[in-house]
């Protein structure tokens, strides 16, 4: 196991380097945006004096590299500066929103991952039957429709026409957990529909890919029933690609939910990002981007480690 720990440490190190490169990209990309931050913040009340004062206050007179280093030093301690709009610390604004997004992602993942893997196994078992084709068509339809469209369809049928669920997923502090699950069901369902197809099809493909292996024929020649051939003999060898696609989709659940959050007016980090961009609240934009990048890197790292842990050759060296 020592090997795996050192491997994880090594990958984490690479992750940190990647994150550093991304932070440079984010900072200077924002820097490249046309217009002056002070001007943007002050808007119509900009006079030469107030602009100068604003620049002084924001430290814009210093060279970009110095400002980058200052920003980075703060970011390492989760201090992303102060929002230009509200004047509150960015970290406190983001943390609640990010927690909300994580909650929604976890909600969707808890439903989507088991369903898609079980469905993937079933369609692999029943491959080329009607069930397989219907499942394929349905999941393909859901993955090919834009998520905002899926969201509106769900609102139309489950909220407007039948009023089974609320159309707007607004959150209040005093809601209990069940109520929370109820209110956020529609956005979670939308996300489930979007990610299930991808994971299910990958599970199916990974398993079917293995069915031609001699050890699968051996299992069949030992009299193993078909479902057991798939679950016991094919699935354990198919984990690596499945884990990878699951990780990719989890990352999407956190970073790609902007549209869904907007549709359901859900107070997540995606909506915050959209607001911040439109208001030119650059510290918030930078912080959000950095968090998204870190999420991607961590989930990919988790996928790699997962793939290693499920490979007996790597887990039990000669």
């Amino acid at each position: 196991m020592g090997d795996i720990l050192s491997l994880v440490a090594k990958r984490l190190g690479y992750g940190v380097i990647t994150l550093l490169v991304i932070s440079i990209l984010i900072f200077f990309a924002v820097e490249l945006l046309p217009g002056d931050i002070a001007e943007a913040v002050l808007g119509q009340s900009a006079t030469p004096e107030t602009l100068a004062a604003m620049r002084e206050q924001l430290g814009l007179n210093q060279p970009a590299v110095v400002r980058y280093l200052q920003w980075l030093a703060g970011a390492v301690q989760f201090d992303f500066g102060v929002s230009l709009i509200t004047g509150d610390p960015v970290s406190s604004a983001i943390s609640q929103r990010f927690a909300n997004t994580l909650f929604l992602a976890a909600y969707a993942a808890v439903i989507a991952v088991p369903i898609s893997i079980v469905l993937g196994v079933i369609v692999a078992l029943l491959r080329n039957t009607i069930f397989d084709r219907v499942a394929n068509v349905l999941t393909l339809t859901s993955i090919s429709s834009p998520e905002f469209f899926l969201g509106y369809i769900l609102i139309l049928y489950l909220a407007v026409k039948t009023s089974m669920f609320p159309a707007i997923a607004s959150l209040r502090g005093d809601m209990d957990f069940i109520d929370l699950l109820y209110r956020t069901f529609l956005p979670a369902l939308t996300l489930v529909l979007v990610v299930t197809a991808h994971m299910m099809r990958m599970t199916r493909a990974a398993i079917i890919n293995l069915l031609a292996s001699p050890y699968i024929e051996m299992a069949r020649l030992k009299g193993t029933p078909p479902w057991k051939v798939i679950v016991r003999h094919a699935l354990p060898n198919a984990w690596a690609p499945i884990i990878n696609v699951v990780a990719l989709n989890l990352a999407y659940l956190i970073t790609g939910v902007v549209l869904v959050e907007v549709v359901f007016v859900y107070p997540g980090i995606g909506q915050l990002l959209v607001d911040a961009v439109s208001k030119r609240d650059f510290p918030v934009v930078q912080a959000c981007c950095l968090i998204f990048a870190a999420t991607f890197i961590l989930l990919n790292l988790a996928a790699d480690v997962g793939a290693i842990l499920t490979n007996p050759r790597l887990r039990h060296p000669k």
Binding site: Y215, R232, H233, P312
Partner: peptide, 10 residues
């Protein structure tokens, strides 16, 4: 080929 006919995962 026993090497290919034993399941590597078990």
């Amino acid at each position: 080929s026993a090497a290919a006919s034993f399941n590597p995962a078990h």
